[in-house]
Structures are given as C-alpha cells and as structure tokens.
Design a protein around this nucleic acid. Structure first.
Lengths: 311, 311
DNA sequence: AAATATTAATGAATATAATTCATATCAAAA
DNA sequence: TTTTGATATGAATTATATTCATTAATATTT
C-alpha cells in the first residue's frame, strides 16, 4: 500500500461516497450518480489504495462503511452543501435567481415530502415565486405548455418535444389492511385477493391508479371503489375496516409500527412506481430548478426509506 | 452561454482558483499546481462558460478576480482546508500519524516563517516528535542519511539516490543599505558596487552565500566580511552604517516601510534563490511530512510577498 | 441441496476529457 | 517600433475514468 504524493481526491469521489451512504449499496449508488457499478467499484478501490485504508466492508452481499468511510462521508456532506450554497450565490450574480416555480402534483402522497422541501427552497431562493398548483389536472403536459405550472411531479410521460422528465426515484406501493383483516395471513397479495374488497383511493380516474392499471384490470378484476382526499382519511377508513388501500411504502412506516394498519406486498415482485419531475426544456436549465431537483432527490433519499434511484 | 445540467466543478478547479488567488497570475498559479498556463486557461474558460459568469478579468497584463471568482476562491479555501483536516484524520486511522520531524535549516532567515508553521503543526500532529536541529551542518545530505534530521530546508542538492528535493518557492535576495548610504541613488546594484563595502552576513562559509557565489566571485570581487547570528543584528549593523547585507526580500518589508533601511535589486534581473525541503525518499511518503510541506507552501504563499512558485 | 438471482470485484478495452503543444493575441516596457 | 511578458485558443496528444465482459461470493427460491 503506497501512497501517491498528491491527493487524488476529487468531488466525483465525494459525490460517490455520499450516494453510497444514502443508498447503502454500490449498485444503487451507481444509479444515483449516473455511472455503472463497476465505475464506483474502481473509484472506491483507488481511494482505498491511496489512503491505505479500507473505506467499505462487505457484510454479506451488502456493504458497510468503515470509520474511514464515515469520515469521508462527513466531509462529503459538508463540502457538497458548501458547493450548493456557492452555486446559488453564483446564480444570483448572473441574475438567474428570479422566476417562478409553480408545482403541480399528479401524486397525492407527494405532499408528505414536498412541504419541508418547499420551506427550504423559499429560504434559498427568496426571489423565486413559489407556488403549489392545486386541484386535479387531466393533462399535465398541456399545463406546462400553457404556463399553468413550471414543474409537474408524477409518472413518466411519453417522450415529447419540449418536455423533459427528470427522474426522482422508484418506490413500492403496498397494500394497506386493517390489522385483523382476513388477508393478513398472506405475505403477498395478488390480483384475485382484491376481488371482493372495497378499494379506497384518492379521487382520481382509474387510469391514474397503478394498482388498477397494472394489476387488477389486466386480471379482469374490478373491485368496488371509495375515495378520500387525504392520506390520513384513507388510513382511517382502512383501519375501521371499510376496505383496503394501496399506498407508497414510505408514508406507512409510522402507522405500521404502531399497529394501526398492516402493509403487504402486491404481486410477486411488488408493485413499483417511478416518480419524475417534468418541465419544459427551457425551464430545465434554470439554476433554481436544478437546485430544486437536487435537493428534492437529496432530502428524499435521506428521509424516505425503501426508495431506489432511477435511471 | 448555456449551462450543462450537472455541475462540472471538481477539486482541481478549486485548487487552481486558490493558486490563482495566491499568486495573482495564471502562469504562476500554473507552476504552483504543476500544470501549464494553458491548462489553467482552459479550466477557467470551462468554469466561466458553465456558470455563465466571468471569473477573472484582465487588467492590463495581469489578471484580477471578479466577484464570482472571489466567491469561488472563498469556497476553495474552506473546502481545501476541510479536506486537509480529513486527510489528517485518515492518517491517524492508518496509524501513520506518529514518527519524528526534525528540521534542519540551511537558510537562517527561514526561521521567520518556520516558527508559526511549527506551532500549527504541533496542534495537528500531537504524536509527531517535532524538533529543530540547531547549529550549522556542513553536509545536510549526510545528516538525513545518518538520521540526524528528517527534513533539511535549503537550496537544491545534486540529484542523489534516496534523497528527494521538494520545491518550496523562489525568492529574491535584495541588497540592504542604510538610508543615507551613497549607493542609495542607484536603483540596481552590480558586483562592482560591493568592491569597497563591508559585507554583513550570517556566520557561514562563502560558498553558502548566494551573493558571493553567484555575483561577486565571478566578477573577482572580494569585499570584507563581518558576521552576525541573527537577522535583526544584521539589520542593526546595516542601519548603523557598518556595511551592507543581502537578505531575502520577504523579511525586509517592515524595516523598509519604516525607513530603517533601504533595499535594492542586485544585478539586472535580480539575484534569486530557490528553496527546497529535502528528505529521504521513504520519509517523503509519510502523511505528516506531506501535510507539513503543503501547509508550508500555503502559509508562505499567503504571508510572504514577492515569492514565486517553483517547478 | 441445487439452481437462480443479486451484488460486488477485477482486468482489459474503450471512450472521454484534461492537458500539452504550437501559435496567436494583447498590453506594457524598452 | 520593437521587444518582452502574459494570456487565450484550436488541434493533437496523453492520461485516466468509465464501461464491458467476466468471475466470485452471497442470498433467495424451488
């Protein structure tokens, strides 16, 4: 283990280490920084031999950071944040710190993580007009084009000229049941299990509900539906045995831990959904939009469990 | 001016910006980071077009940092310091934070900048035995080989197996005169001007005094000599008109500003000297030695004026 | 227990991007 | 005006980061 005379450390390494810390796996981290697993493996190897220390340790098939790794992750956190702050200053200097960010949500549960994010954003970009476009919108792409919103957060759209989909993350949708529900015995729920149940959903059309679109409809199953506006309302209905729901895994942890409801995987490999932030191409290059996207990804990966990087 | 979607900023850029700030010129900065002037010019251009802002501004033939440039330099300062701190921690983790650093000085004036440096070093590396090897040593290389010292600070040595010369900086040696000395009228002093003067030097052999070796001896001039141990003593003798001296420019500023003495260039292009830190090859790879060298260079470039990067 | 699927590590090949080289441009000094 | 010292620029080169293809190792499934 010899050491080169000058530091080989680059921000690329710190970005990798941060992603490694957030995702807990080399291949997920690789997705997060848009590189291959191999590339990261080489990067880590280079760092280890440079410092004469191991940075990660294989624990079974997962990896764990060593003390040295944690020290570098701590550095990465500080440094990357300082860089973000500097880049915000630079954007202000180039008079690119003004404009509007009106956010439209295709996905009701996204409120959960969006609220704190918006608070932080307001601090960092006081001169950007921040708004939440309320209500349901049948054609989000049109909304962007007509200037009704600057970002739409939802699923991917068919490739379209002038629109960019910025990948956020992939999450699992779990079935939510009352603790004493008969289906509690099954570890995994399949389409047939929903046949005689009442499905509790947000008040949106069928084709916007992944469970119906990707699981039930293909199996020819059409359960009864009942709707509620708010996530807590849905959970309340589930807990009082009025039916079952399908919700993103991240918002469920607290309720499941307190035995208010139970959660079950849907179909063998689970029902997954990908979340994107879509903008017009011209909007995509604005510094505050880019900053919004990076902090969105950062805070989501830091706070929501079970999500996976896209791309 | 379009912007790429992800930050292209790397530590390399920050190292460049820091050097640019320290040296005030692209080509000197290039020397400092061991690259060509062209490489830095390309780096800066890339940053500027990435952020859509100019970072430097040509003021005549020199360059000046813009506000954006200064912001990035501030970032660089913080970030590079944090990295140094982290690398010290890592060295401790790999048990490479112990050993000895006995410093021998070939150059008397180096005391001036070495003292505060040693204080900082003691803080950062409490488990490294730090010492100053006192007295004059005829053969510094032998001193290293026999283990009498770990670093020798002085001029370059003939390439020798097992010894590495780490370049520190180049500095100018100025003639120092009493303010009312007859030679005050001349802007530049030449060998002949020293013929009838008494030369006041440190108590070292002639072949270790650059003025004699490179200017006077080649011109066949052998002025009287008188010696003093300390820089202040030499200056005192000069001020009281006992003779003239030749000292590094950096230590003179205060005395010249207070009209205690005056300083003059020696020979047309000035008399310059290069300072190196020499170690055994094996010592060179120790983290605390590398840290010592970088902080030495950093503090010198930050505090001593008129010095120029080597290599 | 065997088979299959994940995940990470590795060496060689490739692609990318940083640096150098050669030269042009510019401002200041001689 | 000529010369000198400094930066900018495009093309060529070099360096090196990343990918590809494969192996090894550990879980998970049948």
């Amino acid at each position: 283990m010899t050491m080169s005379l000058v530091s080989i450390l680059e921000l690329r390494h710190l970005r990798t280490l941060a992603a490694l810390h957030e995702t807990g796996s080399v291949s997920r981290a690789a997705k997060r920084v848009h590189l291959t697993q191999s590339a990261l493996s080489h990067q880590i190897k280079a760092l280890q031999s440079h410092y004469g220390l191991s940075i990660i340790q294989r624990r079974g098939q997962a990896v764990e950071l060593t003390d040295a790794g944690k020290r570098l992750v701590a550095l990465a956190g500080k440094v990357l944040e300082e860089i973000q702050a500097t880049e915000r200053s630079l954007a202000k200097m180039s008079q690119q710190a003004t404009g509007s960010l009106r956010i439209a949500l295709e996905c009701h549960t996204c409120f959960d993580w969006l609220m704190p994010l918006m608070d932080a954003f307001r601090q960092h970009w006081p001169d950007v007009e921040l708004d939440l476009v309320s209500g349901f919108h049948s054609d989000p792409v049109k909304l962007l084009e007509e200037g009704g919103a600057d970002v739409v957060i939802g699923s991917e759209h068919k490739r379209q000229r002038g629109i960019v989909d910025h990948p956020l993350f992939r999450f699992e949708i779990l079935a939510v049941l009352a603790p004493e529900h008969p289906l509690r015995r099954k570890r995994i729920l399949h389409a047939a299990d929903f046949a005689d149940e009442t499905l509790i959903t947000y008040p949106v059309p069928e084709d916007r509900i992944d469970l119906i679109l990707n699981v039930l409809k293909p199996a020819g199953i059409h359960p009864e539906r009942r709707t509620a506006e708010l996530t807590v309302a849905i959970l309340q209905l589930v807990a009082s045995r009025r039916g079952i729901a399908a919700l993103p895994s991240w918002g469920l942890k607290n309720y499941v831990d307190h035995d208010y409801v139970i959660a079950r995987r849907i179909s063998t490999h689970g029902l997954w959904s990908d979340l994107y932030a879509s903008t017009l191409t011209e909007t995509a290059s604005r510094p505050y939009l880019r900053d919004f996207l990076t902090t969105a990804r950062n805070t989501c990966f830091a706070t929501l469990d079970g999500i996976i990087p896209l791309e």
